[in-house]
Amino acid sequence: MSASTPTLWIIIAGLALGSWLLHFSFWGIISNKELPKWAKRHLGYTVVAVMPGIIAPLVFLPRTTNGVFDLLRFVAATITLAIGD
């Protein structure tokens, strides 16, 4: 580790507090209120839209192969998708 220990802990504390506030603000705002139907419908797409976004670079441009398309990784991903669907 090249980063010093106090620096690391400042970053851990900053990220911890920031993440929690970020997560909780939305719980706090919504709490008991019923969201409008259109908002609920849009939020229903969170799972299917965010997850592929996270994994797309990992499947198509894996860093371990220096960003070159890797057939084995692609096949593994396709099989998982087929079984899961």
């Binding site: 371990t64 990784r73 593994a76 991903a77 669907d85």
Partner: peptide, 19 residues
């Protein structure tokens, strides 16, 4: 072992049933 690929496999398995 290509452990880096555990992340996409897990996420695909989570999203696939919702498609």
């Amino acid at each position: 072992l290509a452990l880096d690929f555990a992340i996409p496999i897990a996420f695909i398995a989570l999203a696939a049933p919702a498609l």
